[in-house]
Nucleic acid binder design. Structure first.
Lengths: 151, 151
DNA sequence: CTATGTGCAAATCCTTTGCAATCCA
DNA sequence: TGGATTGCAAAGGATTTGCACATAG
């Protein structure tokens, strides 16, 4: 956490933003809930547990700030609200993909990246300079598939 | 168009829904604007040109209906509104991907599918039964890249 | 005739914004 | 002190819903 804090602090400072106590609270919640895909409101509720005087607007503003610095990324699983992921690019971790069960809504993370070849082609054919990608795979998870088989 | 209409009509009839005139108008707009990624409101405006008495709610309801039957799919490019695509699965056309320019917002379609290998792995490792996928690649398009180079 | 489909307006949900107060370098 | 940050409440925008009327089979 200390390391993360330092890293974020430095990033922000490059454009004269501060890692204020409120922002740090948001950061902490994000860091402690990696892989959970929290929504803004869920983050807000978690932050409130420790800083009850935080406002939802501040959380939104902080999330936007972190997004601008690529500290977090947002994904939309189609349920009408954005969800936030921490640290994909911060520590050189791989891109990862999401399996979304269309029955129960479960989300499984896949930590493999097999898109290099595709990206290569895209780059050459379209002269498109890739900075990021997002792959969502929809279908049925093992449990839901089994349930269906029984009926 | 006639063929499409028949196909949709049949699909709907399997669960006792009708392809009413209003719904047909929506379908027509969708079919005539393939690859345009229209939002609900854009569709509404186009439908109104021919049927000025439609309501926005009907368009939304129709889109939801079509979604349930996999006649259309929705994508979110991160601008806060859903966009709708017609006929991906209807006529066995390939999946396609989207390149999204983070500078000018342009969207380029890529009609190649190189995800078979990845899907194979996902299927085996996670016992996940894939029905669809959605790949968004973010970056800079040729023009925006060139502009940047000049500055 | 009865269930389904529809328009309108109101309601809802998530997110953003205006503004006055607060904080911090 | 002065600009950045914040909380609150209000505004905003996309989508959904309630309800009375219209329509199709």
């Amino acid at each position: 956490m200390e390391k993360i804090k330092k890293e974020v602090e430095e990033k922000l400072r490059t454009r004269d933003y501060k890692l204020t106590p409120k922002r740090e609270d948001v950061l902490k919640v994000l860091a402690e809930n990696k892989g959970k895909h929290l929504s803004a409101e869920e983050i807000y509720n978690l932050v409130k547990e420790k800083s009850p005087d935080v406002g939802l607007a501040t959380v939104y503003r902080t999330l936007e700030l972190f997004m601008n610095f690529n500290i977090i990324q947002s994904i939309d699983f189609g349920d009408g609200r954005k969800r936030f992921e921490f640290g994909e690019t911060l520590e050189g971790s791989h891109y990862h993909h999401h399996l979304i069960c269309t029955e129960c809504g479960k989300i499984i993370e896949v930590n493999e990246d097999l898109l290099e070849e595709l990206e290569e082609r895209v780059h050459k054919e379209y002269k498109f300079s890739i900075s990021n990608h997002e792959l969502k795979i929809f279908g049925l998870c093992e449990q839901c598939l089994n349930k269906r088989a029984k009926n």
